[in-house]
Amino acid sequence: MPVPMTSYQIAADLTERIKTGEYPAGSQLPTYATLANLYSVSPATIAGVMRILRERGVVIGVPGRGTFVPE
């Protein structure tokens, strides 16, 4: 069984997906549950990843709506 990625590896992967246009400016990222499934980690790990990405300005959180790539 493969070792799950660390929060920083997932953050780097999502940053790359944003840079390459998989998640373009203005788009909403998948839900924490969807991302947790994609990366085979817990939703709590994804919450930590989103905290890292928000601190870096890669994504913005909109309360009650989700996480978005800034325009």
Results as ranks from 00 to 15, higher is better:
25 A>P: 11
43 P>N: 06
16 E>C: 11
10 I>L: 05
39 Y>N: 10
58 V>C: 01
48 G>A: 07
31 T>H: 09
24 P>C: 05
50 M>F: 09
53 L>D: 01
35 L>F: 09
33 A>G: 12
69 V>F: 03
11 A>F: 09
12 A>W: 04
14 L>W: 07
16 E>D: 15
45 T>L: 10
40 S>M: 12
46 I>S: 09
60 I>N: 00
25 A>M: 02
49 V>C: 05
64 G>Y: 12
62 V>R: 14
27 S>W: 04
31 T>G: 11
36 A>E: 13
21 G>L: 10
5 M>Q: 15
55 E>W: 00
48 G>W: 00
71 E>Y: 07
66 G>E: 10
49 V>H: 02
4 P>S: 07
18 I>M: 08
21 G>C: 11
31 T>D: 14
48 G>S: 13
44 A>S: 14
47 A>K: 09
1 M>T: 07
44 A>I: 06
24 P>A: 08
62 V>G: 00
65 R>S: 07
47 A>C: 04
54 R>H: 00
5 M>E: 12
10 I>R: 02
9 Q>H: 11
15 T>E: 13
22 E>G: 06
49 V>L: 05
71 E>D: 04
43 P>G: 03
67 T>F: 09
64 G>A: 09
58 V>F: 00
47 A>W: 01
22 E>S: 07
6 T>V: 06
34 T>F: 12
50 M>S: 01
1 M>V: 05
30 P>W: 06
59 V>P: 04
59 V>I: 14
33 A>F: 11
4 P>R: 06
70 P>T: 03
58 V>G: 01
7 S>L: 03
35 L>M: 15
38 L>W: 07
19 K>Q: 15
20 T>E: 15
7 S>W: 00
41 V>S: 12
56 R>F: 00
56 R>I: 00
51 R>T: 13
5 M>W: 10
24 P>Q: 08
29 L>W: 09
61 G>H: 05
22 E>C: 01
37 N>Q: 15
69 V>C: 04
13 D>L: 08
54 R>Q: 11
27 S>F: 07
9 Q>G: 13
10 I>E: 02
66 G>A: 10
63 P>Y: 12
56 R>N: 04
56 R>D: 08
62 V>L: 12
26 G>K: 04
5 M>C: 07
59 V>R: 00
38 L>I: 07
52 I>F: 06
61 G>C: 01
63 P>I: 07
31 T>C: 04
71 E>A: 11
62 V>N: 02
5 M>H: 09
69 V>R: 03
40 S>N: 15
42 S>H: 05
25 A>C: 03
69 V>N: 03
8 Y>M: 13
21 G>N: 11
14 L>M: 15
42 S>C: 02
53 L>N: 00
33 A>C: 04
47 A>F: 01
59 V>W: 03
12 A>E: 14
52 I>Y: 10
61 G>D: 00
68 F>C: 01
50 M>P: 02
54 R>S: 05
58 V>Q: 08
29 L>V: 08
63 P>M: 03
27 S>Y: 07
59 V>C: 04
